[in-house]
Structures are given as structure tokens and as C-alpha cells.
């Protein structure tokens, strides 16, 4: 039993990475939000399992917080934004998807290699998860780079936060509660601000294409 639970955390880490990859290769915005929701749920489950294994009960709280924020509230907000802005269409990416994924594989190899010496140092329950978390962060970054619309970029930002959170939970058994609450609030506020921002962009340019932001620079 005790051997199985760390493996389960590993599995959840792998699922997180899988979802991050699915997000980089997904064209549809609605599906992107669904994937993000699933990522949040996986993260909450992983946090709870880590909490159970290490008997740190404040992790249950942060798992609950994750559920409320990332599974319920933020997806709901994003859906509302999509409804209000009336965007349901496919998004085209800057680089075609197989190429993005190929770069993604390179990023994963890089992240894994980077994490191997570090993970030997840490005594955490699942030493491989650090590499996975790092890969998740980098992949989300990659996704933000390759998208041309504002909404996927926001989702990429949130997914990056998921990766960081997973690294914090799995590698160091969570941060102090205050920090976690602070980060949770930060993310929420960030989404709200970005939401407002998106409406502003739309009003200004009649589209959410971030190419238009290029016009804002001084000539």
C-alpha cells in the first residue's frame, strides 16, 4: 500500500504532463478550458494524496482550495468570457502542431535532464515528479508563445501556475499555508484583471488577436 501511493502520485504527475501536452496540441478553445479543468482536478487529487501520505493536513485545505478555484471558479469565469466575447472557433497556432510537439519533446528531455541531479538531493516521496513539474511549466510557457489569441495565453499562464504548484507540493510537501492562500488569491485576481484586459483589447481592436498589440508600440 505504502509503495503504491507514491507511484500513484507519479501517475498523476504523468497525467498532468499529458494534459499539458494535450493543451499545446489543442486548437479548440472550449476543449482547452476542459483540459485546464481536468488539470486542476488532477492537481487537487495529487495534493490530497501527498497530504495523506505525509500526514500534512493543511494540504487537504490547499487541495480543497484548488478544487474551488481551478476546477469551478476559473473555468466558469473563462466560459463566461468566451460567451460574452462570442468566440467558439478554432484558434490557429503560430507554429504548426507537430512542430510544436517536437519542440515540446525537446523541452521535456531538457527538463528531465536538468532535474535528475536535483532529484537525487531531495528526499521527497516521488523524486521524478520534479522533472515532470518543470516540464509542465516549460510546456505551458511554450503554449503561451505559440498562441496568437489572448484567451489561450491566459490559459497557458494558469497551466504554468499549475505546474509550479505541483512542484511545490510533490517536491517540498507544500508551502506554508499563508503563501498558498496568497498565491491562490493572486491567480484569481490575475484572471480577473486579464478578463478585464481582454474586454479592453476587444473594444479597442474588435478582435482578440494579439497581433494588434504590436500597434501599441512607439514608432
Amino acid at each position: 500500500m505504502s509503495a503504491l501511493l507514491p507511484q500513484f502520485v507519479n501517475l498523476l504527475g504523468a497525467v498532468l504532463l499529458l494534459l499539458a501536452f494535450a493543451m499545446t496540441s489543442q486548437r479548440r478553445m472550449l476543449a482547452l478550458i476542459h483540459l485546464f479543468t481536468m488539470q486542476g482536478a488532477t492537481l487537487a487529487l495529487a495534493t490530497a494524496v501527498v497530504g495523506y501520505v505525509t500526514r500534512q493536513h493543511h494540504l487537504y485545505l490547499s487541495a480543497g482550495l484548488t478544487v474551488v478555484l481551478k476546477v469551478l471558479l476559473i473555468p466558469w469565469l473563462l466560459h463566461r468570457v468566451l460567451d460574452r466575447l462570442g468566440i467558439r472557433r478554432d484558434v490557429e497556432t503560430l507554429i504548426n502542431i507537430p512542430t510544436t510537439m517536437l519542440i515540446g519533446i525537446g523541452v521535456v528531455i531538457f527538463a528531465f535532464n536538468l532535474s535528475i541531479p536535483i532529484s537525487h538531493l531531495s528526499s521527497a516521496l516521488a523524486s521524478g515528479t520534479l522533472g515532470i513539474a518543470l516540464a509542465c511549466v516549460l510546456l505551458s510557457f511554450l503554449m503561451m508563445i505559440t498562441r496568437t489569441k489572448a484567451v489561450p495565453q491566459v490559459i497557458g499562464f494558469l497551466a504554468m501556475e499549475n505546474g509550479l504548484f505541483f512542484a511545490a507540493t510533490a517536491a517540498t510537501y507544500g508551502m506554508p499555508m499563508v503563501v498558498e492562500l496568497g498565491i491562490g488569491l493572486d491567480v484569481l485576481v490575475g484572471v480577473l484583471i486579464l478578463g478585464v484586459f481582454m474586454f479592453q483589447i476587444r473594444e479597442q481592436f474588435d478582435s482578440l488577436d494579439i497581433h494588434h498589440l504590436e500597434q501599441l508600440k512607439d514608432d
Binding site: 509503495a3 507519479n10 504527475g13
Partner: peptide
């Protein structure tokens, strides 16, 4: 045992 790679 659980093999996470098998999820992919």
C-alpha cells in the same frame, strides 16, 4: 505497480 509512462 503503477507505470505512469503507460498513461501516455
Amino acid at each position: 505497480a503503477i507505470y505512469p509512462g503507460m498513461a501516455f
